[in-house]
């Protein structure tokens, strides 16, 4: 009883009241004000940039994630444990360090960045750099969602399909993919949420150019620092609603057991 009370009070003051308060402040002036703040041209542009970056990052990490999961579960090769460990590495890296690392390689004075700039391709302070940063921070999510289900599934059906003359691609589309579809959806949702919400890494590589490379999270910070609280709160609430939606979706999709 006492324990329950301590836990509930702790969660109330750390989690529920702060998040509740921001929703209350945002909707306190009515839904009209909320939508007005979110439909300014800067806000709409930030939405657009966020979506472009997130979709690219999710597509890339999904392809990599499924491929890497199949590789780790179905194939034998030397260095497998190392690859497995390296995939988790992004989790241990500060978002700011991610940004710095990408600047050092893909920035104007970096080896790849200088070469690409000579060919008219700009990575840092532009969309490709933001996609790279987002891919980095969200990299393990799809792999980690798919691997356990792939392990549990076993490869008997895949072998049967191969024996019956199915090509590798057919086996993947008809057997493997349907088997992992819920786990894959779970991983994609996690990856999308992480991509939409990334702040630190994108803050470093984007150059934070208003109306150019500003994502929704950068918009929240910039509006707040410029004393435009309604816009900052409205965008923050929109991001929080996405987070709650993610939470409910993942609860529904999470592999049971």
């Amino acid at each position: 009883m006492v324990k329950r009370l301590i836990v509930l009070i702790y969660l109330l003051f750390l989690l529920v009241l702060p998040v509740g308060l921001i929703a209350w402040r945002t909707f306190g002036d009515g839904l009209g004000a909320f939508f007005e703040a979110l439909t300014s041209s800067s806000a709409l542009h930030a939405f657009q940039v966020t979506l472009i970056v997130a979709v690219w990052a999710v597509v890339l990490n999904t392809i990599f994630g499924v491929g890497a999961a199949i590789l780790l579960v179905r194939h034998e090769f030397p260095g497998k444990r190392l690859l497995n460990a390296l995939i988790d590495l992004p989790m241990a890296v500060s978002p700011v360090v991610v940004g710095l690392a990408l600047i050092l390689v893909y920035g104007r004075f970096g080896p790849f960045g200088g070469w690409l700039e000579g060919r008219g391709i700009q990575i840092i302070f532009s969309t490709p750099g933001m996609v790279l940063a987002t891919v980095f921070v969200a990299l393990p999510l799809v792999v980690r969602a798919v691997v356990p289900v792939l392990e549990e599934l076993g490869d008997e059906q895949e072998q049967a399909a191969t024996t019956l003359g199915a090509s590798r691609w057919q086996t993947f589309l008809r057997i493997t993919l349907p088997g992992i579809r819920w786990a894959l959806a779970y991983g994609v949702v996690l990856c999308l949420a992480r991509s939409l919400g990334e702040y630190g890494a994108v803050a470093v590589v984007s150059g934070r150019l208003v109306d150019q490379t500003q994502t929704l999270t950068l918009f929240v910070e910039e509006r707040f620092q410029n004393f435009d609280q309604p816009a900052a709160f409205a965008a923050a609430t929109a991001l929080a609603l996405i987070a709650v939606l993610t939470l409910l979706l993942t609860k529904f999709l999470r592999p049971k057991g």
Binding site: P18, I22, G197, Y199, F233, A236
Partner: peptide
């Protein structure tokens, strides 16, 4: 699930 910048803003609103 919550973006970190939103977490910071939310805490600043209450504290």
């Amino acid at each position: 699930a919550l973006p970190t910048i939103v977490a910071g803003l939310v805490l600043l609103a209450l504290y």
